[in-house]
Amino acid sequence: MVIKFTINGDEMEVDVKPNETLLDVLRNKLFITGPKEGCGNGECGACTVIYNGKPVNSCLILAPEADGAEILTVEGLTKDGKLHPIQEAFIEENAFQCGFCTPGFLMSTKALLERNPNPSREEIVEALSGNLCRCTGYDTIIRAVKKAAEKMGARS
């Protein structure tokens, strides 16, 4: 079946099967490989995308469910070759090592800062609790989110 959705600002039509997930379609049909498949069970958050304004696990959405959706992946964060302030903050704070979980963290962070431009440490931890990182120990990530909030104009 053919579904229509908007990905990173581009309207697309894709032929999908009911047993494909949104993540399968993004990665294998559209070659948008920012979202990663970690657990495939909604536990690791590596596949997080922003879906109609909200972060979700794209591995838990059947492709046909995404008909009509507006989706933002990490590829859509960069504008005209310029990194998003969240991406800059992650680099400056060394908030990743292997990088596998990073696109998911960036998307969760983007959604958090949109609903709460100046989150407390506790609010950051809660918002990122669905994203696993096995390298950093999270401290640098939390610092990066704080820094990103400052860069994006929040008063601290």
Binding site: G42, G45, K54, V56, N57, L60, S108, E126, S129, G130
Partner: peptide
Amino acid sequence: VGAYQTRNR
């Protein structure tokens, strides 16, 4: 329940 992402769905 679950994580923030899960609760959005």
